[in-house]
Design a protein around this nucleic acid. Structure first.
Lengths: 261, 261
DNA sequence: TTTTGTGAATGGCTTCACAGCG
DNA sequence: CGCTGTGAAGCCATTCACAAAA
C-alpha cells in the first residue's frame, strides 16, 4: 500500500552480520564496566560470561571487526571499547528527537543510557498545546508544528516515536520528509517507510506475550487441560467456517475443531 | 560464577520455532484490527502486508499451528484470533508484578497494551518507602518487603524489572525464589537465573546503538572521514599494547594501529 | 602453555515454487 | 482459477575443534 519496502530492509551492512551488530552494544556495556574497574585485559571466556553469550560466538563476532586480541593473553579493554564504539558510530554525536511526551516519552527523556552513549536529546515534541513549554527532563516540550524546523536546525537523523498508535504513521511521515533516516518506534503499529530509512520496533506487550507462551508450556506439563480453566472473563471460543477431517491438526491434539451450526 | 545456565536457555518449545512464536503477537495485532473492522476473512498476502512480513513466511508460521486456512479463500479472522490467542496462552489470566516504579515503571503501569491482552498488573513494587501507598495508574505502590507475599498471594509467575541496574539481580533473585518463572528485564544488566526461568531483555539504548551503526554506514558514503569530525567531546583514542603487521586489519582501512610509546 | 582467530560442520530460518485443495 | 500448505533449496548464524601466535 505505501512506499515500496517496509520494516527493516536489512541492508547487508558491509561485511558485519546483523546478528553481530546487535551484540556489539552488549559487549560494549560489559567492557565499559570492566574499564571502570580499571581491568586492563580480558579473555574471551570472561567477557563472554559477563555479556551473557558463549565465547566462541564472541570471538567470531570480534573477528569481523579485525584481529584485536592477543593470543595467550586476551583483549585490551580500553582498546576494544574504542574499536567497538567507533564501529557503532558512538564516537560521533547523534542528536535525537523524541515525539510523544506521555508516560513513556517522559521516561525515555529521563533515561540516562542515551546521553552516556553519544545520543543527545535535541528536543521533545508533543501534539498537545497544553504541554508546550512545560519542562520535562530539563527540556521544554515543543509543539508538533515546529517538528520540521527542529529536525533541520539540529541536523537530526534519528527519531524516536512514543505517540499513540493512531498518530505514529503520520509522525513518521513528517520525520522522514524532514530528513530523519532512522526511527525507533514504540507505538504498536507497523510503519511504512521509503527505501533507505531504517525502522526498529520495541513493543512492550509483544515481549510479555512471548513469555506467556513459554510460561504456558511450562505449566502444561503439570495441569492437563489448563487452557480455559483459570480465566474468569474468557470470551466465547468463536465458531467458524471450518471443515472437519483432512489436514494435520493442531500440535497438541486439543483442537476444538468447531463446526458451523 | 552464578547458577548454571544464563540468559534464555531457548527451551526448544515443542514444535513451534522460536522465530515463529516471536511473530505470533504481530499477527494477532493485525488480526485484531481486522476483527474490529468486521472483516470476515483475509488472505495470507493481505495479512502479511498488515503485519509487515512476507506471505510465504506467514503461511509457514501458521502451518506450525495447524491448517487453519481455506484454499482459494484465505483465513477466517475470528477463528485465527482465537487460535493464536490460545497458542500464546492469552486466553488465560496472567497476573504480573512490576518492580521499580520510576519513570519507566510508571509508564509500564499505565500502558494499555497489557490489560487488553490478558495481562493483569497485580501489584507495583518499589524499594523507596516514600513511594509506598502512593497511587500509580490506580494502584497503590507496595514496598519491596511485601514482594514475596504479593507473589504467592496472587500466584504471579511473570515479573517485570524496571529498577536501576544495580538492584536488578537482587530483585530477580527474590522474584525467582518467590516463584516467578518468567522475567521481562528493562534494567541494563545480564541477569543470572536458574534453569527453567525465562528472561527476556528490552534495552532502550541498545536499539538506538544499532540504528546509529546503520546511520553511520549511510553517511559514510558521502563524507569520507567523518569519524572524529563531528564530536566536540570525544575522549582520546586510547593507545594500547598492540603489535603492528600480522593479521587482518579493520574492515575500513582506517584502523589507527596505535603503538605503545 | 594459553588463548585467539577461523575453517568446517551443524542447525535453524527464510524463500522459492508448486502440488493440491476448495 | 485462487490461495493455502509444504517439500526442497539456499542462506545465515552458531558451534566445534584446532592450527597458529604470543
Amino acid at each position: 500500500m505505501a512506499t515500496g519496502r517496509t520494516h527493516r530492509p536489512a541492508t547487508r551492512s558491509r561485511g558485519i552480520p546483523e546478528a553481530t551488530v546487535a551484540r556489539l552494544p552488549l559487549y560494549l556495556r560489559a567492557l565499559t564496566a570492566l574499564s571502570e574497574r580499571s581491568v586492563p585485559t580480558v579473555s574471551s571466556e570472561e567477557l563472554a560470561t559477563a555479556a551473557g553469550v558463549n565465547s566462541a560466538k564472541l570471538r567470531k563476532d570480534f573477528s569481523y571487526l579485525g584481529s584485536y586480541g592477543t593470543r595467550g593473553v586476551g583483549y585490551d579493554v580500553e582498546y576494544l571499547v574504542y574499536q567497538i564504539s567507533r564501529e557503532l558510530g558512538l564516537t560521533q554525536d547523534w542528536p535525537v528527537v523524541i515525539v510523544g511526551i506521555g508516560n513513556l516519552g517522559a521516561a525515555l527523556a529521563n533515561y540516562g543510557g542515551f546521553a552516556s552513549r553519544g545520543f543527545r536529546v535535541a528536543a521533545l515534541i508533543d501534539a498537545d498545546p497544553a504541554m508546550a513549554g512545560k519542562p520535562v527532563a530539563g527540556l521544554p516540550v515543543r509543539h508538533t508544528d515546529e517538528l520540521e524546523a527542529i529536525i533541520s536546525d539540529n541536523g537530526v537523523s534519528i527519531g524516536v516515536i512514543a505517540t499513540p498508535a493512531g498518530a505514529a504513521q503520520q509522525v513518521c511521515d513528517r520525520l522522514v520528509t524532514a530528513g530523519v533516516t532512522s526511527i525507533l518506534n514504540f507505538a504498536p503499529t507497523v510503519l511504512s517507510v521509503p527505501e533507505g530509512v531504517d525502522v526498529r520496533k520495541v513493543d512492550l506487550s509483544i515481549e510479555l506475550q512471548i513469555l506467556a507462551f513459554h510460561e504456558q508450556r511450562k505449566a502444561g506439563e503439570e495441569t492437563a487441560a489448563a487452557s480455559a480453566a483459570t480465566a474468569g472473563a474468557t470470551p466465547v471460543p468463536p465458531r467458524v467456517a471450518r471443515a472437519a477431517g483432512g489436514g494435520r491438526k493442531g500440535p497438541d491434539g486439543d483442537v476444538p475443531a468447531v463446526m458451523p451450526a
